[in-house]
Design a protein around this nucleic acid. Structure first.
Length: 514
RNA sequence: GGCGGGGUAGCUCAGCGGUAGAGCAGGGGAAUCAUAAUCCCUUGGUCGGGGGUUCAAAUCCCUCCCCCGCUACCA
């Protein structure tokens, strides 16, 4: 039986349309999931939408519709985005689903049974108009003697009945967990932040609200709905069958990797493990936080008008290209920059010129000079052995990079060998050999086609569509495309289809400004 | 304020004690199999400022300047 690998994105908050940050997380997680699948794992990849919470209620109220209506309008956009990106998620969860309410209530009951939930009063500055509490620092006392919230609405001191989670009791256990599992949080700088936060002391967490009813009802006390993060985090359990499908849940839980944005590290690295400890459930193996994307160095915001619509980007450049760009250009875990120049350069230099053209020039020569059939390798020379060994060694370089979510490093390693392959091809000059030593030309063309095959197999997690077309050009059957097939070299005598460009060049005139 | 991370070529970054590196951009050349792609050569940096340790410092220590993240309940 294959080893399992359960990987998730954070669930998106559908109070607006998807933006490039949502797309980035989904495409990166998809690349990691696909890599594991090709590497022989039984992968379960979950993504979805986090529909509850006060923000949904507020946004819906402004538009004069219900939170449910708002969600039903926006969630399909997220599903469409995931599909347009070519993501291979096994499920798309919505937290409004009955099965999810059931799962959330179940974990709540278990935390309550463990004695970690108690009822008390929550006090804070409350805006009736916003239907929201604000921290003291978010409010200001103006000259008129009235205190106002961040939305400019008056706030008043309110005390509300609330359930609390005994987070303070978990400080030592959390710190011990971070210490014993140094890979629990990545990248390392995020772990440092979490550790110093927990070391500074934990306060109990208010985990229910009575001011609105859009959410999961607290068991046996339906006046309360759960604080949105309690139910949002539980999606990771619901997605693999908790609590009813013990077989699926037993198979996939605990998650091997939660991929999240750096803004929600605390919820995943402090609250979530504490909830699970309380409920007596195993903890996820790892939480990895990616960075934010900036448009030409500026934070994307609606007011600046530099928000990038993922659908526009995909339409302009193609899903594979967009995926490659972000994964190659931005060190995963760090913030990154997006610009039209950057994406056009990457696509043209790396995809069209380096990889695409290498495939095209070698396959064209095979089509023209070898009757469109994979030629015989003949006796290999040192140069041939060197480039073959470099390509064949790539999986061993990519695997540790992908396992530590250093996707950019895996791609850099692959492209370094692609550059070597171009040097090899130019150095061997098979177009000269055609006249002087046709036998040798065949060997060079064979070796080049073989390394192109290896590149195509390895590049599938990042560019599933283009890689698949490249493998089509190499007449590779469906069962010869996973990493195990890397060891099965191209068979001489195989008839190849006529070569076609897989990575078109982007002419700057047609490049779409963003 | 506290804790943490950074400031290296025009841009993005690697190097973290032993004669300054990569990719992209710029300049010159070769080749013509190929998506005018490829290959070779090359311009370019007082490695944030100052001080110190050392035979030797981007690399260690001190100090100053600047940038960023975290510093609890919007998601």
């Amino acid at each position: 039986m294959k080893p399992k690998f359960y990987i998730t994105t954070a669930i998106s908050y559908p109070n607006g349309a998807p933006h490039i940050g949502h797309a980035y997380e989904a495409l990166a997680t998809d690349a990691l999931a696909r890599f594991k699948r090709l590497d022989g794992y039984d992968v379960f990849f979950l993504t979805g939408a986090d529909e509850h919470g006060i923000k949904m209620v507020q946004t819906a109220a402004r538009e004069g519709i219900s939170a449910k209506e708002l969600s039903d309008r926006n969630v399909p956009k997220f599903q469409a985005m995931v599909e347009a990106l070519g993501c291979s998620n096994d499920a798309f969860i919505r937290t409004s689903e009955p099965r999810h309410h059931k799962a959330s209530q179940e974990i709540w009951r278990r935390m309550a049974e463990a004695g970690d939930i108690y009822k008390d009063t929550y006090a804070g500055w409350y805006s009736i108009r916003d239907e929201a509490y604000y921290a003291e620092g978010e409010t200001e006392l103006r000259a008129d003697g009235v205190r106002y919230g961040p939305q400019g609405t008056p706030v008043e001191w309110v005390e509300e009945e609330s359930y609390f989670f005994r987070l303070s009791a978990f400080q030592d256990r959390l710190l011990a967990h971070y210490r014993d599992n140094p890979d629990f949080i990545g990248p390392a700088e995020r772990r440092n932040e979490v550790v110093s936060f927990v070391e500074s002391g934990l306060r109990d967490l208010s985990i229910s609200r009575t001011t609105f009813d859009w959410g999961v009802k607290v068991p046996d006390d339906p006046r309360h709905v759960m604080y949105v993060w309690v139910d949002a985090l539980t999606n990771y359990l619901t997605g693999v069958g908790y609590p009813d499908d013990a077989t699926q849940f037993g198979r996939y839980w605990p998650a091997d990797l939660h991929v999240i944005g750096k803004d929600i590290v605390r919820f995943h690295a402090v609250y979530w493990p504490a909830f699970l400890m309380s409920a007596g459930l195993p903890l996820p193996k790892r939480v990895f936080a990616h960075g934010f994307l900036f448009n030409r160095g500026e934070k994307m915001s609606k007011s600046v008008g530099n928000v990038v619509d993922p659908f526009d980007l995909i339409a302009a450049y193609g899903a594979d290209q967009v995926r490659y760009f972000f994964l190659r250009e931005v060190p995963f875990g760090q913030d990154g920059n997006y610009s039209v120049d950057g994406i056009v350069t990457r696509i043209n230099a790396d995809l069209a010129n380096d990889l695409g053209n290498l495939a095209q020039r070698s396959l064209s020569m095979i089509a023209r000079n070898c009757g469109g059939v994979v030629p015989n390798a003949g006796a290999l020379k040192g140069e041939d052995e060197i480039i073959l060994a470099a390509a064949r060694g790539l999986l061993d370089a990519c695997r540790p990079a992908m396992e530590s979510q250093q996707i950019h490093q895996a791609l850099a390693a692959i492209w370094a060998v692609i550059a070597d392959a171009n040097r090899y091809f130019a150095g061997q000059a098979p177009w000269e050999l055609r006249k002087t030593d046709p036998q040798r030309m065949e060997t060079v063309l064979y070796v080049t086609a073989e390394v192109v095959r290896i590149f195509a197999v390895l590049v599938q997690p990042v560019m599933p569509g283009a890689a698949s077309r490249l493998l089509d050009l190499l007449a590779q059957p469906a069962d010869r495309r996973d990493f195990a097939a890397l060891a099965t070299p191209l068979a001489a005598g195989t008839t190849l289809p006529p070569p076609q460009g897989v990575f078109p060049r982007i002419e700057t005139e047609t490049a779409k400004p963003a």
